[in-house]
């Protein structure tokens, strides 16, 4: 009896979240926010839809974290949109070290609270003794942590990097997917444009690692690299962009000291 009541209220809460989210999308269809990443906004015909959730999928070394950092950096520095980076795997000092390779003044943005970095890596990857029952949980701690930061900081751009850690740690793909949908709905309600990052394995043809991540996103972007002689070339593909046409096929990109540049 208790189980029935609990899952039923969870389902109703999720349904309510979805209805509210969809209603908001209908209220303001088509409002875009440019990523600021050079050449990318043209691929998606003018930027990302405000309040939508996108999935960035790719193999290790493809440039996912750089893409996300630049999305937040440009948003804060050029479009006045405060950003939140939630790291579930990599420690913040490592992320910031990565950012120092670019001509971006991240420190000033952090000092002015235009950029908020949340390090949940130790928790997510379990740097303490942990016992797990993967069938009975809700990602409410993550939900409330993100929502608190969003409300307090007036956040408009969110990166969750990588959600694949949650699938790996909790194991129950269906429950994690449901919970991430609830978080996505909350971010939509707050008008946040969000990127969820997921990793794929090199050499495997799948779009995402667990085969479900793409279904909860309004758009899917895939990053990968291919060997060219002794070097590697990076590519991006727009796999899905709900509500918009987009460039079909792969585009090569490079990483410069000022971020990503989409080439040809």
């Amino acid at each position: 009896m208790a189980r029935r009541s609990s899952s039923s209220s969870g389902f109703m809460a999720e349904l309510k979240e979805r209805i509210i989210s969809e209603a908001r999308v209908l209220e303001s269809p088509g409002e875009r926010t440019p990523t600021g990443i050079r050449g990318f906004d043209e691929l998606v015909r003018g930027g990302l839809f405000r309040g939508a959730t996108y999935l960035l999928s790719g193999v290790s070394g493809a440039g996912k974290s750089i893409f996300c950092l630049e999305f937040l950096y440009r948003g804060a520095a050029e479009y006045g949109e405060p950003g939140l980076y939630v790291s579930l795997e990599e420690h913040l000092d490592s992320i910031l070290r990565n950012a120092r390779n670019f001509r971006w003044d991240m420190k000033s943005l952090i000092d002015r609270q235009m950029l908020v970095l949340l390090d949940l890596s130790a928790v997510a990857v379990g740097e303490r003794a942990l016992s797990l029952n993967p069938d009975m949980f809700a990602l409410d701690g993550l939900y409330t942590t993100i929502e608190t930061a969003v409300k307090e900081g007036g956040i408009k751009r969110v990166v969750l990097d990588p959600i694949s850690v949650l699938f790996l740690q909790y194991g129950n793909v269906g429950v994690v997917r449901r919970e991430l949908n609830v978080i996505s709905g909350m971010l939509k309600r707050h008008g946040c444009t969000s990127i969820f990052v997921t990793e794929t394995e090199h050499g495997k043809p799948s779009i995402t690692r667990f085969g479900v991540e793409e279904f909860m996103a309004d758009g899917v972007f895939i990053l990968y690299w291919e060997p060219e002689g002794e070097k590697r070339s990076r590519y991006i593909e727009i796999y899905k962009m709900r509500g918009s046409s987009h460039y079909e096929g792969k585009k090569r990109f490079s990483v410069t000291d000022n971020g990503i540049v989409i080439l040809y």
């Binding site: 997510a124 003794a129 016992s131 029952n133 990602l139 929502e147 608190t148």
Partner: peptide, 26 residues
Amino acid sequence: PERAVREGIISTPTIDIVGLNWRFIG
């Protein structure tokens, strides 16, 4: 929410045995 942020709680239920550095999730 500040407790969730401060203590790094991602999911509920979490049973934290303070002093033993052990957590049960689920």
